[in-house]
């Protein structure tokens, strides 16, 4: 192995020690939360004397918390759908077309990703706060949260897909046209399967971002539509109980589960390609 500081064992050990510290730093909040979720006491206290699943039971029997979880999953699902479709088709056209202001288009589409959630949330809240659509109040509804989350998720899928389409062999599309395939059919039967890994990764990013986001959701939801991270934040600000630890574990489990599903899909996909 090449080691930059191979002459000096001191530096080598120092580097390893620092990396260990960073790993510990990353592990601390995760470990503390996971351990606390199995606490039996009604308060957050250390050291933990008795273990139980009581707070898991409490979480899943509370209609307020399960409703928040359902809201989160629903909003994340729609965000994934919208941002993946919009990001993918835009990236497809973007890599194939040359047009004036192409750089400006890229900048505009990517910019929201770098904007603080509080700015995006405020903008949408004051611009759409009083807007009614078909007699329905937009503000406080899930649709507005979905578009807000898309402002972060879509640039990401666009970026991933742009990189994917750049390496895509254009001659395959031409071959499909020569064989009589129309643009739509060619897109679904030739192009899309070739870039499916990019699409799935983009979708995963979108899902995770939406599931975890809470500043925009805090601005845009009401008691009925609030997401799990919003409810967690509000409950942390009043009084933390071990229920919060369970909520954090449930949220992480949802993310982890989607990651595992994607990896299983990827394993199957690779096998199929062989």
């Amino acid at each position: 192995m090449v080691w930059p500081f191979s002459q000096s064992d001191l530096f080598r050990w120092l580097h390893a020690a620092l990396v260990t510290l960073i790993v510990l730093f990353i592990a601390v909040p995760v470990a503390v939360t996971a351990v606390m979720s199995f606490n039996d006491a009604s308060l957050i206290r250390f050291p933990i004397r008795a273990w139980s699943l009581r707070w898991y039971l409490d979480f899943f029997s509370s209609s307020q918390w399960t409703q928040a979880l359902r809201n989160s999953l629903e909003i994340a699902a729609y965000t994934t759908l919208v941002s993946t479709v919009f990001g993918t088709i835009a990236a497809y056209a973007f890599t194939r077309l040359r047009f004036p202001l192409k750089g400006a288009f890229y900048f505009l589409v990517m910019l929201p990703l770098f904007m603080p959630g509080i700015v995006l949330g405020l903008g949408i809240a004051i611009a759409f706060g009083g807007v009614e659509l078909f007699g329905l109040q937009l503000y406080g509804g899930k649709a507005l949260v979905v578009v807000a989350h898309c402002l972060w998720a879509m640039p990401l899928t666009f970026m991933v897909m742009e990189a994917t389409f750049k390496t895509f062999d254009e001659r395959l599309v031409e071959a499909a046209y020569d064989l009589g395939g129309g643009p739509v059919r060619t897109f679904f039967e030739v192009t899309l399967p070739m870039v499916s890994t990019g699409v799935i990764s983009g979708a995963l990013f979108s899902f995770v971002i939406s599931l975890n986001e809470f500043v925009m959701a805090l601005f845009l939801t009401t008691r009925d539509t609030q997401t799990l991270p919003v409810l967690m934040w509000l409950s942390l600000r009043s009084a933390g109980t071990p229920r919060l630890a369970v909520a954090a574990v449930v949220l992480a489990a949802a993310v982890f589960l989607s990651l595992v599903l994607v990896m299983l899909w990827y394993a199957r996909h690779v096998r199929k390609l062989r």
Binding site: V23, P29, V30, T33, F46, N212, M232, L236, G240
Partner: peptide, 20 residues
């Protein structure tokens, strides 16, 4: 390990350190 903090919600991270 590097990916870990990216997958966890900011609120869960806050809560973890809040107990630490």
């Amino acid at each position: 390990i590097a990916l870990c903090p990216l997958l966890i919600s900011e609120i869960s991270i806050i809560f973890g350190w809040w107990m630490f």
